[in-house]
Structures are given as C-alpha cells and as structure tokens.
Amino acid sequence: MGIEAVTTSLSDKLDAIFGPCLPAGQPVKPQEFQLRPASVQRLDVDTASILRQYLDTAKAGLLLSVAIHRVHPILWLVDHAGDVWFAVEEVVSEESGELLYTMARGSHIPPGHVKLGHPSLLISTTNKSARIGGEIKYFPASQVWKISNRSGRYGTRPHQTEAHLKAVAERFSEHGIELAINFWTP
C-alpha cells in the first residue's frame, strides 16, 4: 500500500503539471503502434545540450536550419512518466516500414506512404496515451523558436491548458533551451 500511495502521488503531481495521461484524441495508425521515428530521442542532459546547439544554428544564421524548420516542425510529447520525447515527423513505407523522408507541413502523402506522428514517439507498442504534445518551430522574422501544443491527438484536447504547455517549456528551459510559448486553444 505504501508503494501504491507514492505512485499515485507522483501521478497526481504529473497530472497537475502536464495534464492527465490519456489516449490520443484522434485515431492512431497501426504503423504508429509498431514503429518509432529514426530521429526520436528523450530530452535529457546529453540530448538537450546537442539539441540546444542545433537550435542555436538557426539563430546564428545557418540558412539551412532556418529553411528546414520553417516547414519541418520538431514534434514533442510528454509521456506517462513525465519524460519529454522529440523527433521530426517522418514518412515510412506502408509495406516495409522503411524511412522514406521527413515530412514538411502541408505535404501530400502519396499512397503506400505513412506519416509517423506524435503517437509513434511513445515507446509502448500497445498504449499510446500521453500527457501533452505539440511542435517546436522556428520563426525567422523574430529569430525565435516557439513551442506550441499543435497536435490533434495530444495537444488540443479539452482538458489542456496553457499552464501545461508552460510546464513543458520550463522543462526545456531547465536544459538551457529557451522557447516562446504559442498556445492553441482547443
């Protein structure tokens, strides 16, 4: 009973910070249960340092990263344990699961190709519940990286609040990654 009380307490705390861990707000494709993006990583001390350096290349004027991230947002989500995962949106072969290309916003997906969205960032192959998810995108006019809750499956569910998004931005900030907040109303 003591362990259960501690687990419940941690879960309640995470619920308050990031929102409850619930199923996706829209259907999850079979490939998103089976496959994870080649670019997926967990935000931790090591990956955050490298991610921060990468994001800084756009601010420093590397036009390659500016051009890429105007149309290729970085997906992120918070899992049941409160861990943040990030990746670019990838498209795979429906038949083989092989990575074909990264997907730009607004792209048409041809037959036989499948987009791996937010649910594919989760480790579990059976439970695709998450607390909150969205995108990180670069805005060259203001030279700012913005984090949003733009995810039809995990970001704009009715229970989500701007405070949940701010908590995620704070998690990145703990690692020296400063992101402006752009909250999408459900």
Rank of each mutant, 00 (worst) to 15 (best):
S142N: 11
T102M: 14
H113V: 02
Q160G: 05
H72E: 15
E4T: 14
W76Y: 13
D79W: 09
Q143W: 12
P37Q: 07
R150V: 07
S93Y: 00
I177F: 01
N127L: 13
A58V: 02
A38K: 15
L63P: 01
K59D: 08
A180R: 10
L43N: 00
H113Q: 15
E4K: 12
L51E: 01
L121N: 07
Q26D: 08
V144E: 15
G106F: 03
I177L: 04
D15Q: 08
S11G: 10
H118M: 11
P73S: 11
S9H: 08
V71E: 09
N127V: 15
S65T: 15
P158A: 09
E89D: 15
K59E: 09
M103D: 12
G117H: 15
I177H: 04
S142P: 04
K13E: 10
M1E: 14
R70C: 13
V45H: 11
I147K: 05
P119M: 14
I50D: 10
P37I: 01
P186R: 04
T102G: 09
S173P: 03
A169S: 06
I74P: 01
G176I: 08
V66F: 10
S129C: 14
A104Y: 00
A24K: 06
L10Q: 13
D83E: 11
L63V: 11
A180T: 08
F33W: 04
S173Y: 09
S96L: 13
S148F: 00
S124Y: 04
A104D: 04
P111K: 09
R157V: 05
